[in-house]
């Protein structure tokens, strides 16, 4: 699903966020991406969603070499990736329903289909009764779940999450992870950037460790060793 071949990212001004990173995330795999803040987690996710371009190496997503993808094709690439942000990035002047419906409206689904899919996505994150509310009236955990519903409403084969539990207490974090696990069980590839080591240790998934832009570890921290 995701393959990095010797990828580097140097920002203007010389700061090197990633240095010679190579890994492969198989289709249907769920993995964590961890490291201290500034280690390059966000940059790595941005390269996958083409928010940034690498300064060296190759990024291949879903069989597509991203360096060959022109500017006009970027939107269509992003439609295949559900991205979840730490700061949720919701539209506060629209209802929960309208927020979740946005990817479907962009993709040109019919009115009927949009209603059906939005309710299905809200049901999966446990917010079915709140579709008419505005995000500002929701708690942080609920806002995060709206963001998750929006990321998966389009049924993308790949979900990226950048610190999805950053501001949540451990119990809510477990719930959010449960939602990701449910997606993964139905075949969605999931890559979660997180520095919550306790949470990562409690789960049986592969962990990619970044240290100062270099891939410093690739293995299983969790209880079951991925068995």
């Amino acid at each position: 699903m995701i393959r990095f071949n010797h990828v580097s990212k140097r920002y203007p001004g010389g700061y090197e966020a990633l240095h010679d990173v190579s890994y492969h995330l198989a289709a249907g795999e769920m993995a964590f991406l961890t490291g201290h803040s500034g280690a390059g987690k966000s940059t790595l996710l941005k390269l996958i969603a083409l928010i940034e371009r690498p300064s060296g190496g190759q990024v291949i997503v879903n069989g597509q070499n991203l360096s060959k993808l022109g500017r006009r094709k970027i939107p269509f690439h992003r439609r295949n990736i559900g991205v979840i942000f730490q700061d949720h990035r919701l539209l506060f002047d629209r209802t929960v329903f309208d927020n979740v419906a946005l990817p479907l409206i962009i993709a040109g689904y019919s009115h009927h289909e949009i209603g059906r899919r939005v309710r299905a996505a809200l049901d999966k994150v446990g917010l079915l009764g709140k579709e008419k509310l505005y995000p500002i009236t929701l708690s942080g955990g609920e806002q995060q779940r709206v963001g998750i519903a929006r990321a998966v409403v389009n049924k993308p084969p790949l979900v990226l999450a950048d610190e999805p539990t950053g501001n949540l207490d451990p119990e809510l974090s477990r719930e959010i992870m449960g939602i990701f696990e449910a997606f993964n069980r139905v075949g969605v590839s999931v890559l979660i950037a997180s520095h919550d080591h306790a949470l990562i240790r409690s789960m049986p998934y592969r962990v990619l460790g970044l240290d100062h832009g270099k891939l410093a570890g690739d293995g299983f921290w969790g209880r079951d060793n991925g068995a």
Partner: peptide, 16 residues
Amino acid sequence: RDEIVITKLIGGTDAF
């Protein structure tokens, strides 16, 4: 601006 950024992030084309 925020709305435009979010729309671009989830795959909105320039035309949209």
